[in-house]
Nucleic acid binder design. Structure first.
Lengths: 124, 124
DNA sequence: CGGCATCCACATGGATACTG
DNA sequence: CAGTATCCATGTGGATGCCG
């Protein structure tokens, strides 16, 4: 319910409304899809947990990306008051709804870049 | 057959192989998904035809994007020798295989940004 | 643990003009 | 028709260091 922090603006290139460009604006960044994928897989995660799971990302870029994903209502940040305190990043329902998109991206990547020995795989 | 101009390098963020980042590198640019979508919809298209269908893109950016997509084996450029000459951009088989990804992006965009009156649509 | 501050390099995109 | 040539503004990502 308290999902989308603000209303989503309709991002689009030209004047006409374009669902693809909209989606691309949301997840068409280098790290966004991977981050969402990890959150789908592992569920709510801490910052450093995420940093470990997203191989190769720096603290700053992870931080920037999470900020962006929060602005867009994909990711939610929760502070757990314990000693020491913890932070949980999780997907909003909008974020969870991206699962089919992320999975199709994963599937495509697997089918077309795996199996280096397969002449038809795209990577030989 | 003569589809993939060169072998695909395995783009990935860290050291481990990651299908999502790979896919994101291919189509995770502002205009790439739309261009591929238009080629899926309209079939082989000329430059200005594409420029018209991709609302808001400039010549330079379309040109750059098409170059990039060709490098990655997604798009193919064919010169038709007529008077005057024409150029056809079309999808390679690898490009065509992206259809599920593009369609899931389109579907997500439609479901989550359309229907401003629907409280559950993401845009209220 | 969970970041932010800085600084910097390069990529991406846009406007305008011009060409074969 | 199908681009290319500039120039410029902004975006995106990376390295390093510091902080509560």
């Amino acid at each position: 319910m308290s999902d989308t922090p603000e209303r989503l603006e309709v991002w689009c290139a030209g004047e006409e409304w374009c669902p693809i460009t909209t989606t691309a604006t949301l997840i068409g960044k280098k790290w966004h899809p991977v981050i969402v994928h990890r959150l789908l897989e592992s569920g709510p995660s801490g910052f450093n947990e995420l940093k470990t799971n997203v191989d190769g990302i720096s603290s700053k870029v992870l931080s920037d990306s999470l900020d962006d994903l929060q602005e867009k209502g994909i990711v939610e940040r929760t502070v757990v008051n314990e000693q020491p305190f913890r932070v949980r990043y999780s997907l909003t329902s909008r974020g969870t709804s991206l699962e089919p998109v992320i999975l199709s991206m994963a599937e495509w990547g697997e089918q077309h870049l795996k199996a280096p020995e397969d002449p038809d795989s795209g990577v030989r």
